[in-house]
Simulated scan of single mutants.
Amino acid sequence: MEKALAGSKAECRLEHNGRIYHLTVNPVESDNSGFGAVVFIVDITERELSDKMRREFSANVSHELKTPLTSIMGYAEIISNGIAQKGDIPHFAGMIHTESARLLTLIEDIIKLSQLDEEGQLQDRFEKIELSEVCRNVADELASKAKSLGITLSCSCQKAEINGFKPVIHEMIYNLCDNAIIYNKKGGKADITLENTEKGIVLTVSDNGIGIPPEHQSRVFERFYRV
C-alpha cells in the first residue's frame, strides 16, 4: 500500500484462513494532491491447487515411466554388450517383456485419464450395468491371485443397476480389489460388498491389510499418487 501511495504499482500473494489471494494495488493520482490507491483482490486458491496437482502429477508420471524404462535399458544393455551368460538371456528377455507390458499399461492409463477429462467423451457410451455381476466377475478373476497370496476374497453383493461405462467401472473395482489383495498380509482377507441403502447404492472394498497412513488418506484420489 505504501508503494502505491508513493505512485508505484504493487503486487503480492496473501494466504488467509486456508485461502490464497493475489493482491494488486494501483496508484491513482488525485488532482495533484497526492496519490490514492485501488486494490484488486482475486481468490486464486483453486488455481494454485490445480497448478500444484499438475506439477505433482507430472513428477509422479515421470517417475512411474522412468522406473520400467530404466530396467528395460539395463537388461538390454547387458545383453547387447555380451556381458550376460547364455543361460541368463531368457530371464533378462522375460524381464524386458514384463517391464515393457508395465510401461504399456501406464501409457494406456494416461490416455484413459485424458479421455475422462474430456467432458462427454464417454457419456454417449453409457449403458445399464448390473453392478453385482461386475463385482462377482472381478472376484472370480482375482480368486487365483488371492489364494496364491494366502488372502481370503469374499463377495457379498445385492442386485444393483447403474448407468455407466462398463470397462471403466470394471477396472475401477478390479484395481480396488487388486490393491486390497496385494497390500495385505498372509492370512488376511478382502471383502467386496454391494448394498442398496436409503441413500443409494453403496459399494465397499475392505481389507485388514497394512492400510493407508492417515497423513496420506486425503491424497488417495490424486492421479498416480503413491504412498
Rank of each mutant, 00 (worst) to 15 (best):
D88G: 06
I83A: 05
Q85G: 11
F92L: 02
E77G: 12
L65E: 01
C12M: 09
A37H: 00
S33Q: 15
M95R: 15
I111P: 09
L113E: 10
M53A: 11
L113Q: 12
R19I: 01
R125E: 12
T105H: 11
G87L: 15
I96D: 05
G87P: 13
S30L: 15
Y75E: 07
S50R: 08
N32I: 10
E130A: 01
G87A: 13
F57R: 04
S71P: 09
S114M: 10
P27R: 03
L65W: 01
G87N: 13
D43Y: 04
G87Q: 12
F35L: 02
P90E: 00
E15A: 09
E130S: 06
S100T: 00
G94W: 07
H91N: 14
R125Y: 08
Y21C: 01
K52I: 06
H16D: 12
S50P: 08
K52M: 10
H16Q: 12
N17L: 13
L104A: 15
F92D: 04
R54Q: 10
S50V: 08
G120F: 03
I110W: 07
E118L: 12
Q123F: 15
E46A: 06
I41Q: 05
E130D: 12
S50E: 14
C12P: 13
I41M: 05
I83C: 04
N26D: 03
G36P: 01
F57T: 06
Y21T: 02
M53S: 13
A76D: 01
Q121V: 14
H63E: 10
G94D: 04
G74A: 05
G120L: 02
K86G: 11
V25P: 07
S50Y: 12
C12F: 09
A37F: 07
S80W: 11
L49V: 08
G74M: 05
R13M: 07
R54G: 10
L69R: 04
H91M: 14
E15L: 08
E118C: 12
Q123D: 08
H97A: 15
T24D: 08
N81S: 12
V42F: 09
I129W: 07
F35V: 04
N17F: 11
S114C: 13
H97G: 15
S71I: 08
D109L: 01
S33P: 15
L113G: 15
Y21S: 01
E119S: 02
F92T: 02
R13C: 08
L104N: 14
R54M: 09
R54P: 15
T45G: 03
K128D: 13
Q121W: 14
K66R: 05
D88S: 02
A59Y: 03
F126K: 00
K52E: 11
K112F: 10
E46Q: 03
V38W: 04
Y21W: 02
Q115L: 09
V61Q: 00
I111R: 14
Q115F: 12
S80L: 14
I41E: 05
N81W: 11
L116D: 11
N60A: 03
F92S: 02
I44Y: 05
Y21K: 04
I129L: 00
D88W: 06
F126T: 06
S80I: 12
K86E: 14
L14Y: 10
L69A: 02
Q121K: 14
D43K: 05
C12G: 13
N60K: 01
V38R: 05
Q85F: 15
V38D: 00
G36R: 08
E127Y: 07
R47P: 07
E118G: 10
E108M: 02
V42S: 06
L65V: 04
